[in-house]
Design a protein around this nucleic acid. Structure first.
Length: 500
RNA sequence: GGGGCGUUAGCUCAGUCGGCAGAGCAACGGCCUUUUAAGCCGUGGGUCGAAGGUUCGAAUCCUUCACGCCUCACCA
């Protein structure tokens, strides 16, 4: 970083900064009053042609980062950007103060400036500011990436996201879209009488999902704390307390592997609706996501990794139906009867080439079979419902089939996007489920949940029938921005530390 | 964690069979008052990811390591 040729590149820029100071300019002024952002100029004057700008002169005062400079000895063009749009200004030696021209000669690509002048159109028709004043605002001391290819090295892009944002305008667009997606989801829920809440990020117990937690420690209390893997158990305490519709948008932390679909911290919108069941949430989910797609994308068909995803058509299968429907491992095709017992499921699992784990229940194997056979085929928005009770320690059982629970997941582009269920509100049954989790934990399953006595106590005060859901905001954003990696929709994804 | 690929100038990339380290942009010095990847002339810039090894000679072959990407496993 501080060796060899880059030193001279940086030295050049530092020398220029010193010269700017010697010319009498403040190298780090405190503020700049502008009349227009660059973006506003570009949109507001998009329709004014050269004649219109001549007949009715428009002066603007704006600011941004210099993205390109083209000099002609006694004149020059430069583009400045506000991060979203860019506009050109034209500076002529005989139309500005001598000092301003000298200042301009000391500018580099990357510097931040203010410009003041009248708008005109060049011969080629480009909207341009004829500069009458130029204000130095900040120096870019490090050399900028190249103008044609920009910055493509993903390691630098993720580590130095600021540079990525400066150079690659589409990155800025993705994160604006992410912001809009979250805003629209919030708006959707608020319009339905939901209240936004914040619950603890540091938990004394692990619960609400199956995942390994990050562990930390409180010094004064001398107690271990877990970064939350899910807010679920706190949000449901709130429904006990009479907050009938609550939601939270925040991070979960899971101490698991990292991949194009997994970051150790990720954003989940989780919501609970009293006096409703999972079927109501299926409707709500479809309505919410189609509306968000309409608002954010403007059309129902979205391209993701080259595939057309149609949010105008939603599919639904029970987990068992999906296994039969999407079976692609040759004849004979399985029938519902083959899923009826553990041995049948295990046999099918063997036909996929997977080895059914020894101690696992029929429900767990069913889940495994689903993942083997179905998951990656669920490209179009698809609800999978009725999950095995063994995989769902917090969900309410089906009345007519207690081996299964009232739960669904939403799949898009082969990814799990949402998970929802009718909440188990029978405290005795919940205790049994927790005890089962504790047994798993004792057998070495470090993803199993812990007994949460206070949560049981809350349920004993009575929780209304309630349905709850979590939607993975990062993954939804991936689909709506055609981003193949979760790192493309997280500003600062976790990376190993830079060496040195 | 396993497998595959990658790491060369500030950036984007070439580098053949092991034989003097290259280009474009950026930078620096000139010329240039409507350019658009502006143009023309000239100049400088390298611990070839790191450490070992093979060889008369290594960016190039071998080993180990670091980081990244893809993929599998795990997970949402």
């Amino acid at each position: 970083m501080s060796s060899g040729p880059q030193e001279t590149l940086v030295q050049n820029r530092e020398n220029k900064l010193a010269e700017i100071r010697q010319l009498g300019f403040d190298p780090y002024p405190h503020k700049f009053d502008y009349t227009h952002t660059v973006s506003r100029i570009v949109t507001e004057y998009a329709d004014r042609d050269a004649a219109a700008l001549e007949a009715e002169p428009q002066t603007v005062r704006t600011c941004g980062r210099i993205m390109a400079i083209r000099t002609f000895g006694k004149a020059a063009f430069a583009h400045i950007s506000d991060g979203t749009q860019r506009i050109q200004f034209y500076l002529k030696k005989n139309e500005v103060d001598e000092k301003i021209f000298q200042l301009f000669q000391l500018l580099d690509v990357g510097d931040i400036v203010g410009v003041d002048g009248a708008l005109f159109r060049t011969r080629t028709g480009e909207l341009t500011i004829l500069a009458r004043d130029l204000v130095f605002l900040a120096k870019c001391l490090l050399p900028m990436p190249e103008k044609w290819h920009g910055l493509t090295d993903v390691e630098i892009r993720y580590r130095q996201r600021y540079l990525d944002l400066i150079v690659n305008p589409e990155v800025n667009a993705i994160f604006r879209k992410r912001s809009l997606i979250i805003r629209k989801m919030r708006e959707f829920l608020e319009a339905r009488r939901y209240v936004e809440v914040e619950t603890p990020m540091m938990h004394p117990l692990v619960g609400g999902a199956s995942a390994r937690p990050f562990i930390t420690h409180h010094n004064k209390l001398d107690m271990p704390l877990y970064l939350r893997i899910a807010p679920e158990l706190y949000l449901k305490r709130l429904t006990v307390g009479g907050m009938e519709r609550v939601f939270e948008i925040n991070r979960n932390f899971r101490n698991e592997g990292i991949s194009t679909q997994h970051n150790p911290e990720f954003t989940m919108i989780e919501f609970y609706q009293a006096y409703s069941d999972y079927r109501d949430l299926m409707e709500l989910t479809r309505d919410m996501i189609t509306w968000v797609v309409d608002e954010v994308v403007g059309q129902r068909v979205v391209t993701f990794k080259g595939q057309a995803i149609d949010f105008g058509t939603w599919h639904r299968f029970t987990m068992r139906e999906a296994i039969l429907h999407f079976w692609n491992r040759g004849e004979p095709r399985p029938a519902m009867a083959d899923l009826a017992d553990r041995e049948g499921v295990a046999a099918l699992l063997r036909r996929t080439g997977a080895e059914p784990a020894a101690g696992e229940s029929r429900g767990a194997l069913l889940g495994q079979l689903f993942e083997e056979v179905v998951e990656e085929q669920l490209v179009q928005p698809t609800f999978i419902y009725e999950y095995p009770v063994e995989l769902s320690p917090l969900s309410k059982q089906k009345d007519d089939e207690p081996d299964f629970v009232e739960r669904f997941e939403l799949y898009i582009a082969g990814m799990e996007i949402a998970n929802a269920y009718s909440e188990l509100n029978d405290p005795d049954e919940q205790r049994q489920r927790f005890l089962e989790q504790v047994r798993k934990r004792e057998k070495g399953d470090d993803e199993a949940q812990m007994m949460d006595e206070d949560y049981i106590r809350a349920l004993r005060y009575g929780m209304p029938p309630t349905a709850g859901e979590g939607i993975g905001v990062d993954r939804l954003t991936m689909v709506l921005t055609d981003s193949p990696s979760i790192r493309d929709v997280i500003l600062f994804p976790l990376l190993k530390p830079e060496k040195e």
